[in-house]
Amino acid sequence: MSQDREPLFSSKNMKLLREPLDDTNPITVQVLGICSALAITVKLEPSVVMALSVVFVMGVSNVVVSLLRSSIPPRIRIIVQLTVIASLVILVDEFLAAFAYEVSKQLSVFVGLIITNCIIMGRLEAFALSNKPWPSFLDGVGNAAGYGLILVIVGFVRELFGSGTIWGYQVVPQQAYAMGYEDNGLMILPPMALITVGIIIWVQRYRNRKLIEEKQS
């Protein structure tokens, strides 16, 4: 009996968790969920909070939809999925407003926009609707972590070069400023988030040659 059952952390399941970090990264490879990813990465702290919120919403919504997968009528599945996601996002939003008010002010509408974050809908459609709860959970957490990883990298780079701080603490020494070093004001502006992601994609594809796109004719 028990031989038929897959162990909880079999290599197949671990692959679900690990692959989205690099080979199938939601942002740089699947091009999903960029909307909310970039606007909140000026500082490291909101990026981390955002990443954690998305991990929570994706993990739970994947499990819920996976449990409901046989009883959701295919015609109205988008509305059902949106409702599941929206309820979870309301939880996150209320939680942040209660326990991390400053950060929730900074994130403003972007917490709400987790609802239309294409990663969540995309993974629900592509994975949770046709798989068991546990693999769906891993897939959700893995993808959200891949998303969070990019968010944290971008947040780190932008805060370091844009404000000379990390997590609000000064890291560029005062002497450097005295010698004429200046923060790169451009890094705080929204367009630099795009360029930073562009460069991350460049580095990733340089290391991982199989991700390079075919030349279009």
């Binding site: 795009l194 994609i201 990733q204 594809r205 390079i212 796109e213």
Partner: peptide, 28 residues
Amino acid sequence: IRYSNVPAPLRGLGITFIITGLMGIAFM
């Protein structure tokens, strides 16, 4: 840009991001 010689790892998605960033700077 399809006719330009973009570095291979930057082709497609990467260059689109960077162009959007540059357009954004113009819009600023």
